[in-house]
């Protein structure tokens, strides 16, 4: 019997993060009876699918994929979403904020109100429809200060609410995914990843991404210090000059609240180089919905957001 010599082996930081995420997904599979993985076609959830492959292949995923579509997503991203799910041979469920609007459970204040926060309603409806007891999401703690304090296994009550003052203690790698009927656990396997970790992982694993993550030319207007894409749902306002610039998206979400940055990076290596020297945080640069108030993510989470 060979005895290991002095174990001077340390996992690289990406291997460690990946292994932690695999462990977390397997705990969901082991502890929950009807979990689901939230897959948007964005870079974080693309990493999660890779982790899920490493966690469960050659078996099938022990959960379906779910996307809450605002109806205002970039076509390149929803096409990618559908293609990736088909390649993996896994079941994709799409539920639309527009269906909730038709049902009357989502009421917009105005036709052009961003729909991002209303995803919470549609998500909770989907959870109820399918009886999901756990939702695996791609949120990261480095994104935002409310997330910095959230557990990896985060309990939500029957209204989907997160209570930051009353979180379950989470020690070692002993996760508690228990819930009663109607309650829900949100699980964040890549909690400990940062934006640069995500890009390094994409590079290492050679993961395909929707084209809008890479530099491309697109018509935009300058508004409120940021660049806004000119699209069908976000037309230029009277008097605004439309420019065509080379840009890429750092995050991808609802068209009305996701802005690109100017960039010449056409491959992952150049994106990593740009990310390493960037001077603006990911959400600060590109998420218009987080800028409305200092506490807006915390508020949305309490209302059942991812």
């Amino acid at each position: 019997m060979s005895t290991a010599k002095l174990a001077r082996v340390t996992l690289s930081h990406l291997d460690w993060l990946e292994s932690e995420a695999i462990h977390i997904m397997r705990e969901v599979a082991g502890q929950c009876s009807n979990p689901v993985l939230l897959f948007s076609g964005g870079k974080d959830s693309i990493c999660m699918l890779r982790v899920a492959e490493k966690a469960f292949r050659p078996g099938r995923f022990p959960f379906p994929l779910l996307h809450i579509d605002t109806g205002h997503n970039y076509r390149e991203v929803t096409d990618f979403r559908d293609r990736r799910a088909a390649e993996l041979g896994e079941r994709l469920i799409v539920r639309s904020v527009e269906d909730s609007m038709a049902r009357g459970t989502v009421v917009l204040k105005s036709a052009d109100e961003p729909r991002n926060k209303h995803q919470s309603v549609t998500l909770l409806e989907a959870i109820e429809e399918f009886g999901f007891d756990a939702c695996i999401g791609g949120a990261r703690r480095d994104e935002e200060k409310a997330r910095a304090k959230e557990r990896i296994f985060s309990f939500r009550d029957e209204f989907g609410q997160w209570d930051p003052k009353n979180q379950r203690p989470e020690l070692w790698d002993l996760y508690n995914a228990r819930s009663f009927k109607g309650e829900n656990i949100r699980v964040f396997p890549i909690s400990n990843w940062t934006e640069i970790d995500v890009w390094q992982y994409i590079e290492r694993e050679k993961l395909a991404l929707p084209a809008i993550y890479f530099a491309h030319r697109r018509p935009l207007v300058r508004r409120g210090g940021g660049l806004l894409p000119v699209t069908e749902v976000t037309p230029a306002r009277p008097g605004e000059a439309v420019e065509t610039l080379q840009v890429r998206f750092r995050t991808v979400g609802d068209i009305t609240c996701t802005a690109p940055v100017e960039s010449a990076a056409t491959d992952v290596a150049s994106i990593i180089a740009e990310t390493a020297v960037t001077t603006i945080t990911e959400r600060g640069a590109t998420r218009l919905d987080d800028q409305t108030s200092e506490a807006s993510m915390e508020q949305r989470k309490k209302e059942g957001y991812f």
Partner: peptide, 8 residues
């Protein structure tokens, strides 16, 4: 201060 915060 409510809880443990993780930073990177």
């Amino acid at each position: 201060t409510i809880d443990v915060a993780y930073r990177y």
